[in-house]
């Protein structure tokens, strides 16, 4: 029977489990710290308002005890067209993600794999756009999208219209190209050996073939990361749709939260609605979690 020889130094200190105790304790405290708001939200979504505030003083605030029911959830659907808002946000976020992955990866591919004059300067300019906050150019952007033309299908013909306000496209297209996604793809593409491109070129492949058949299939973690990082701001979008969308049927979920802030807000309903709109984001993150962490680790980008 094989016996394990003691590790150097292992006999002089406490056992490994004990030595790791402070680390584990810190992790548990941090986990609780981040989990408590979510737990509070979920638990409170089943309680009546008065009980939510009555329980605040103690640990009952985090426990599913007392008068629990689904009343808040049914009230949400009476107050807000929640399903419509969820579908709107899902559609807007999903299309932004899909288009964002295609457009930004193509841009990053050209910057990373192809040799042409000025590409480093262009990459610098793209990265520089990240320091400009959206709020600073939101109003000019409203004015601009209100002037933009669009071709609309009208029976068997096309009609030229002006202004993008009150549409889905105005919630999607301004957010497809994003400097951070381009940078992230660029960093990841740099880690893929360029010899693969040369071999493919010799075999007769074109640049688009290399992008589609070699680079993208090897970039799963980067795609997952860009998907999450694009999805989150699209899902959380509030200011922009508030400014450009007037019709209720086009509104996203975050604008819906305002429906609950009446003179006497119903906090139970707010918690129920918040829980409903948080679940899709959590699900997405859990689905892509491993790829997300791999990509962050391998691309050298930390948020």
């Amino acid at each position: 029977m094989a016996t394990r020889s003691p590790q150097p130094g292992a006999t002089s200190g406490p056992p490994t489990a004990w030595r790791r105790l402070p680390v584990h304790a810190t992790r548990v405290v941090l986990a609780l710290f981040f989990a408590f708001p979510v737990v509070f939200m979920l638990v409170s979504s089943f309680k009546p308002d008065q009980q939510i505030f009555g329980d605040l003083a103690g640990p009952r605030a985090f426990l599913p005890v007392g008068d629990l029911s689904l009343t808040n959830y049914t009230a949400v659907f009476d107050r807000v067209p929640a399903l419509r808002f969820l579908l709107n946000s899902l559609a807007v976020s999903a299309i932004t993600v899909v288009l964002g992955i295609v457009v930004n990866s193509l841009a990053a591919f050209a910057l990373s794999r192809m040799r042409w004059r000025g590409r480093k300067f262009l990459l610098t300019v793209i990265i520089a756009t990240l320091i400009v906050p959206f709020e600073t150019f939101a109003l000019p952007l409203v004015w601009w999208v209100n002037e933009l033309p669009w071709l609309e299908v009208n029976g068997f013909g096309l009609t030229l219209t002006e202004g993008w306000l009150d549409t889905y496209r105005v919630q999607i297209l301004p957010f497809v190209a994003w400097g951070f996604s381009i940078f992230l793809f660029h960093q990841y593409f740099q880690s893929i050996p360029k010899e693969l491109d040369e071999a493919a070129l010799i075999d007769g492949a074109g640049w688009f073939g290399i992008y589609r058949r070699i680079v993208m299939p090897l970039s799963g973690p980067a795609i997952a990361t860009v998907a999450i990082l694009t999805f989150l701001p699209a899902w959380n979008s509030y200011l922009w749709p508030l400014m450009v969308v007037q019709q209720e049927e086009l509104r996203p979920v975050m604008v819906g939260i305002q429906y609950f802030f009446q003179l006497n807000p119903s906090w139970g309903e707010i918690m129920a609605y918040s829980s409903m709109i948080t679940v899709p984001v959590l699900a997405l993150f859990l689905a892509f979690q491993r790829s997300f962490i791999n990509s962050i680790a391998s691309s050298g980008v930390k948020g």
């Binding site: 559609a91 899909v98 889905y168 997952a224």
Partner: peptide, 30 residues
């Protein structure tokens, strides 16, 4: 992400995208 999850996510995205594109990305003009 395993193959099944990947297929599910891809199918969902394609379905949603197709629906929205068919709708012309437009709003109900009032």
């Amino acid at each position: 992400m395993n193959a099944k999850t990947r297929r599910l996510v891809t199918a969902s995205l394609v379905a949603v995208t197709t629906t929205a594109v068919l709708a012309g990305c437009g709003g109900a003009d009032g």
